[in-house]
Design a protein around this nucleic acid. Structure first.
Length: 560
RNA sequence: CGGGGUGUAGCUCAGCCUGGUAGAGCGCUGCGUUUGGGACGCAGAGGCCGCGGGUUCGGAUCCCGCCACCCCGACCA
């Protein structure tokens, strides 16, 4: 296939739009791949759509390879379905009515709809099933950001599996995980599969696929030895050891006038911040006050705390704190309080300085178990300097994009929607399901975040908009142009996607645009190459750059 | 929803403080010269200065309100 650039709509920009921050956002806009229509709403221009389609095709092939069946479910969805699963109250859900007042939603995923169809499965003999589609998702995000990184409308490949039991589900889940590894590898991404939060809608098991990136909303924690990877929200790790001052037989009061921060406390007492404890009073949805306690140098992990409390919560207000503890926020501690204390595991051993629940005073030598009886849990957020929980190796923290997420949902949808089947023994059971999502646009953005240089995008060959970019530096010479056209034609007939820059532009401009667009292989035809009947061939990554004979071009392209 | 910021030509921005009939660079059109890393000359086109109200003889500029967009946070099946 050969495309003439002189006739295409590829509006490249010399400068990045002022509001762009992320590299992928800047380069995809500058390269003429995407344009913004409204906040979080984007058009894929012809070039961008080609890349998107290439990613889609890879995903499709890998899904089909594990027995997935492609279909298409509608965007417009009756509200009733979502009422039945109680997801109609999700704030991100778009609602609308038709002229007769019937209510609809614009779904953010299709569990309800696919389960609605799965009601037609009536026998174990029809199981398992793996259904998927590529469709538009709508989410009323309070805040979209970073170009394609987080949008309010996007295309997602979402697959749904239905099985008779957990064993069947485990099998598809594993197969899907394998397919996901293959698709991200094929797309040229660096990524990690990590155990993820199951989420409020999810079920038992959940795996996130995170691609390290210059911009993103997740933090990927990996061990240097490759034996541990997790999302920061749930990452476990070994904190550095604390250096303790002398111990005491019982907590000993010490005056700390005006000291309300850990830094000030550690400095005044001349001790390691890790030898102090930090108290974070929170209030659960039912109004119960709980005191979270972490080491002074640690941060409370909001997501871990959420799991431990099994309830939503908020920080206690100043008034609530004073009422419960009789002191201000900077002077709180676990000794002698009436509320439940949830202490981080790091506080299990050692004697720590803690607030005395009296303004201007702290306690020295506070020991868990002896001086207060906490419930221990892992509630600290991992941080730089921690060691791997598996092997003790150094941990690495990277900003990352979530490109895929798979999770088991069991009968979360089949039970409320009444999707049951008759099992072999004649009993009626709910279908057991799993959900497997991946965002092609995020794969695209992640690929750019990972592969670019100061001049533009350096596409992984598998998802580049065109395989080969032929530049005709004809400067009006019909002979050169004819040569370039012939070359493009030859490659096109071999099944390569060729972009021929036959525009009436100066060489510098063609080079700059070619760098920006980022096709993996570039072939330059000009007066210089006409002389020896050759072509200048180079790869976008700069690894190869050489004059080759015309007859060798096909071979060269296939090798690079 | 909280905090910060920006809306002036297709893009990047100046002008606003201190009111006086709209600017630059790039891009665009035509002609000519050029042609291996974003050329040069000449001649042009292009703006409800985000929207509404107010103050004023006069508002891009000052005041009030609204809207949009971006960044940080909250949120994120």
């Amino acid at each position: 296939m050969i495309a003439r650039q002189s006739q295409l709509f590829i509006p490249t920009l010399r400068e990045a739009p002022a509001d762009a921050e992320a590299v992928s956002h800047k380069l995809l806009v500058r390269g003429g791949y995407i344009r913004q229509v409204a906040a979080g709403v984007w058009t894929f221009l012809p070039l961008g759509w080609r890349v998107h389609q290439k990613v889609v095709q890879i995903i499709r092939e890998e899904m089909d390879a594990i027995g997935g069946q492609e279909m298409l479910m509608p965007v417009l969805t009756p509200l009733e379905l979502w009422e039945q699963t109680k997801r109609d109250r999700i704030p991100e859900l778009f609602h609308l009515q038709d002229r007769a007042g019937r209510e609809y939603v614009l779904p953010m995923t299709h569990e309800e709809t696919v389960t609605f169809h799965a009601k037609e499965i009536s026998s174990y003999r029809q199981l398992p099933q793996l259904l998927y589609h590529f469709s538009i998702k709508e989410r009323d995000e309070p805040r979209s950001r970073g170009g394609l990184l987080r949008t309010r409308e996007f295309i997602m490949k979402d697959a749904y599996s239905f099985d008779r039991d957990d064993a069947g589900l485990a099998e598809v889940f594993e197969k899907s995980e394998g397919a996901y590894h293959r698709m991200f590898q094929r797309a040229g991404l660096e990524y990690s599969a990590v155990q993820a939060e199951s989420g409020m809608m999810g079920g038992e098991e959940s795996v996130d696929f995170l691609a390290p990136s210059g911009s993103g909303e997740n933090t990927l924690v990996t061990c240097e030895n490759g034996d541990y990877a997790a999302d920061l929200e749930i990452a476990r790790s070994i904190p550095r050891p604390a250096t303790f001052p002398a111990s005491h037989d019982a907590p000993k009061e010490v005056a700390t006038p005006g000291v309300t921060t850990i830094e000030a406390l550690a400095e005044q007492l001349g001790i390691d911040a890790a030898a102090t404890s930090k108290a974070m009073p929170v209030v659960k949805t039912d109004g119960t006050l709980v005191l979270g306690l972490v080491r002074g140098d640690d941060r409370l992990s909001e997501s871990k705390m959420l799991g431990v409390l099994a309830s939503d919560y908020r920080p206690a207000t100043g008034d609530e704190i004073r009422a419960a503890f009789g002191a201000g926020g900077g002077s709180l501690g676990p000794v002698g309080v009436d509320v439940e204390v949830v202490a981080d595991e790091a506080l299990r051993e050692g004697h720590f300085v803690a607030g005395a629940n009296r303004d201007g005073w702290h306690l020295l030598g506070v020991e868990a178990g002896r001086d207060y009886a906490p419930r221990f849990a892992d509630i600290r957020e991992s941080r730089e300097g921690d060691r791997c929980p598996v092997c003790g190796g150094a941990l690495r923290f990277q900003v990352a994009i979530e490109v895929g997420h798979i999770f088991k949902f069991g009968d979360r949808y089949s039970t409320p929607l009444g999707a049951t089947f008759l099992d072999e023994d004649g009993t009626e059971r709910p279908l057991i399901g799993g959900s497997y999502g991946v965002g092609p646009a995020r794969v695209m953005a992640a690929a750019v975040e990972q592969h670019y240089d100061e001049n533009g995008i350096v596409w992984p060959p598998s998802i580049a908009p065109y395989d080969v970019h032929v530049l005709s530096l004809d400067g009006g010479s019909a002979e050169v142009l004819a040569r370039a056209e012939g070359l493009a034609g030859t490659l096109g007939r071999e099944g390569l996607d060729v972009l021929l820059d036959d525009r009436d532009e100066r060489p510098g401009e063609k080079f700059a645009d070619a760098d920006l667009v980022g096709c993996p292989v570039r072939l330059i035809v000009g007066k210089r190459t006409l002389d020896d009947d050759g072509v200048d061939a180079r790869t976008r990554d700069g690894a190869s750059d050489e004059r080759i004979a015309g007859a060798d071009v096909l071979k060269w392209v296939q090798q690079h």
